[in-house]
Amino acid sequence: MIKTIVDVISVWLIPVIVLVVLTWGLLKKIPIYEAFIDGAKDGIKVSVDIVPYLVAIIVAVSMLRASGAFEIAGSLFAGLLEWLKIPVDILPVMIVRSLSGSALLGMFSDIATTYGPDSYTAKLAAIMVGSSETTFYVLAVYFGSVGIKKFRHALCAGIFADIIGIVVAVAVARWLFL
């Protein structure tokens, strides 16, 4: 029952948003086609702009993954992960989630291809990836922009929310998909 409602909401959300936005735009006499093209150009520009950041982080995280560091961490925590029914490849996702959004995305597409996009591992990863912003990136950009050097309680609050997010993601994924 809940799952049906969930599926219906999930499928309808995007079409409804698109329809509402377009209808509202027409009602307000906005040239929606031109506005769309305008915004879409920004989209292309942004995806080009992020390439250097992607290279810096994805190379570093690829190195980390190829080095076997996650296997070392994985074997250290294997028992705990198995007990919590968390696939070993989710461990790096949990760590990188707070560090780099683009690396996380690369990692996630890797999981989706390796395990298949409809596997439990991919779904759990999808929920974790989709439910958080990159704490360290946001800290750097937002506080950096006004020259704040002491973060006070902001960092702890961010990490606290990240941990809660991970815990809830595992719980929800186990409830719906396992």
Partner: peptide, 26 residues
């Protein structure tokens, strides 16, 4: 892979920012 990801993202970003632009202007 970084460049491949950026290319994958370009389309969906363009679409969503396009829709958002309408939402913003209206």
């Amino acid at each position: 892979k970084s460049v491949e990801i950026a290319i994958y993202l370009a389309g969906i970003m363009a679409f969503w920012l396009g829709i958002m632009k309408i939402a913003e202007k209206s």
